[in-house]
Amino acid sequence: MSKIARKDVLDEMTKDDLVAWIRNHHFYKPKRSDVLYIRWQRQSAEVLEEMQKENRALDGLDFKERDRLAANFNESKDTAEKLRLLDLIQPYDKAMSDHIKRSQALDRKSKRVDALYEQIDVERQKEPRT
Rank of each mutant, 00 (worst) to 15 (best):
residue 80 A to R: 12
residue 93 D to M: 09
residue 99 H to Q: 09
residue 100 I to M: 11
residue 77 K to T: 14
residue 91 P to A: 06
residue 92 Y to E: 05
residue 102 R to V: 09
residue 101 K to G: 13
residue 98 D to Q: 11
residue 81 E to R: 07
residue 84 R to H: 10
residue 78 D to W: 02
residue 105 A to S: 02
residue 75 E to R: 12
residue 89 I to D: 05
residue 95 A to E: 00
residue 91 P to Y: 03
residue 86 L to T: 07
residue 90 Q to K: 14
residue 80 A to P: 01
residue 77 K to G: 04
residue 90 Q to T: 13
residue 75 E to V: 06
residue 86 L to G: 05
residue 85 L to F: 02
residue 95 A to T: 03
residue 78 D to A: 02
residue 81 E to L: 10
residue 79 T to H: 14
residue 91 P to L: 04
residue 105 A to Y: 01
residue 75 E to Q: 14
residue 102 R to E: 08
residue 82 K to T: 07
residue 86 L to E: 11
residue 96 M to Y: 09
residue 97 S to N: 14
residue 79 T to G: 11
residue 91 P to C: 10
residue 78 D to S: 06
residue 85 L to I: 01
residue 102 R to W: 05
residue 89 I to W: 04
residue 90 Q to S: 06
residue 101 K to H: 11
residue 91 P to M: 03
residue 77 K to N: 14
residue 85 L to Y: 02
residue 87 D to F: 07
residue 93 D to N: 15
residue 101 K to R: 15
residue 101 K to P: 02
residue 87 D to T: 05
residue 86 L to D: 09
residue 75 E to N: 12
residue 98 D to R: 12
residue 78 D to P: 00
residue 93 D to S: 14
residue 89 I to G: 05
residue 96 M to E: 12
residue 77 K to S: 14
residue 100 I to W: 06
residue 92 Y to V: 01
residue 87 D to K: 09
residue 80 A to M: 07
residue 76 S to T: 07
residue 76 S to C: 06
residue 101 K to D: 15
residue 95 A to L: 04
